[in-house]
């Protein structure tokens, strides 16, 4: 039995998961808690949000995110990749900045028009 805090939404349900009973999840307020708890103890994932350098916009940084959660162990590698990138304005929300970042299967996309 493991105890976890669900991070899917701000409610922060306190979950219990029993590995010996086919990953039975308890304490979840919604269905998403079940998927979170199972992923968290098998292969935890996180959405990465950061910035990349942008030229020709009102500010020098463009905010970006991975368009889906990536394995937690790839966060550092993804940061190293996006630290080397420079993009040029104009950029639209949702534009792909890096395809399949760090081999995660997720794309790095812009989160602001600049």
């Amino acid at each position: 039995m493991k105890e976890l805090t669900c991070i899917v939404c701000p409610r922060g349900c306190r979950l219990r998961i029993d590995e010996t009973r086919d990953f039975l999840v308890m304490g979840n307020g919604c269905e998403r808690g079940i998927d979170y708890a199972k992923a968290e103890i098998t292969s935890p994932v996180r959405t990465l949000t950061s910035t990349v350098k942008i030229v020709g916009a009102c500010h020098p940084r463009l905010p970006v995110k991975t368009n889906r959660p990536i394995p937690k162990k790839l966060l550092r590698e993804a940061m190293t990749i996006l630290n080397r990138i420079t993009v040029h304005a104009p950029i639209r929300i949702g534009d792909v900045i890096v395809k399949n970042i760090a081999g995660s299967g997720a794309d790095l996309t812009a989160t602001r028009d600049m």
């Binding site: 959405t47 949000t49 028009d113």
Partner: peptide, 25 residues
């Protein structure tokens, strides 16, 4: 919101998880 580039905004209002700049947009 423009400096809150992390996600977690809009789960109640838009029923999806947005970053700060996306929520503002």
């Amino acid at each position: 919101l423009n400096q809150c580039i992390h996600n977690g905004f809009g789960l109640h209002y838009f029923k999806e998880e947005l970053t700060g700049p996306e929520y503002a947009a």
